[in-house]
Design a protein around this nucleic acid. Structure first.
Length: 193
DNA sequence: GTACTGATACTCT
DNA sequence: GAGTATCAGTACT
């Protein structure tokens, strides 16, 4: 697989449902003082849009979710369940609250750094939204950071030879009728099959 | 299956 | 301003 250029901001200026599918097979890259961490995105969920009761932004604009209302191509990182950070990519044009949650990646390089950030070595270190952020060392300070330049970026690849599975989203109470989770068929780093 | 964790958002003074 | 129910998860038995 070849890892290509950084995806430009315009890439994200579409509906989150489209971006959720397009991000599969792309590489998320974090530059750290210890070196580079890379992982293939293998599982995503789409949130937001106009009528999504499961979205943080479905009720009203708050200090926490305001980044979802902003321009596309930025990170939306938030803290939940007391000790987990979850990482989202803001999509669609400014004013429309939508985002894509990155749920799982497959490690490509910098695995030793992931283990260091995670604290211990486990087989599926990036399988799950909070595991992925922990292994990449992503925390609240990344909230609002651009993904088309800087320390944390997403790159294009030539990896297109996979099948996408549609499934209900995980861990939510409303909106479970919508098949807005997407993952790469057969990939062992997908958190829930 | 349960325990755990703490920020957030909401409901009261 | 203070109290509390909720939560897009993980680790453990």
């Amino acid at each position: 697989m070849k890892i290509g250029r950084i995806l430009p901001q315009e890439f994200y200026n579409k509906s989150s449902l489209i971006i959720a599918k397009k991000l599969l097979g792309k590489v998320i890259e974090r530059k750290t003082p210890e070196g580079r961490i890379q992982g293939i995105i293998v599982e995503t969920e789409s949130y937001g849009g106009r009528n999504d009761p499961a979205s943080h932004a479905s009720r009203k604009k708050t200090p926490r979710n305001q980044i979802m209302f902003g321009p596309p191509g930025f990170a939306y990182v938030y803290f939940c369940y007391g000790n987990h950070y979850l990482f989202n990519v803001v999509t669609d044009k400014e004013g429309i609250p939508s985002a894509v949650l990155i749920r799982a990646v497959e490690p490509v390089s910098g695995i030793d750094i992931m283990i260091k950030y995670y604290g211990k070595e486990i087989p599926a270190i990036t399988s799950g939204p909070a595991r992925f952020t922990k292994a990449f060392g992503i925390d609240k300070s990344f909230n609002g950071k651009p993904l088309f330049k800087g320390e944390l970026v997403i790159r294009d690849t030539d990896f297109r030879d996979f099948k996408i599975v549609r499934a209900p989203r995980i861990g939510i109470k409303e909106g479970t009728d919508k098949l807005w989770r997407f993952y790469i068929k057969g990939n062992k780093f997908v958190s829930v099959k």
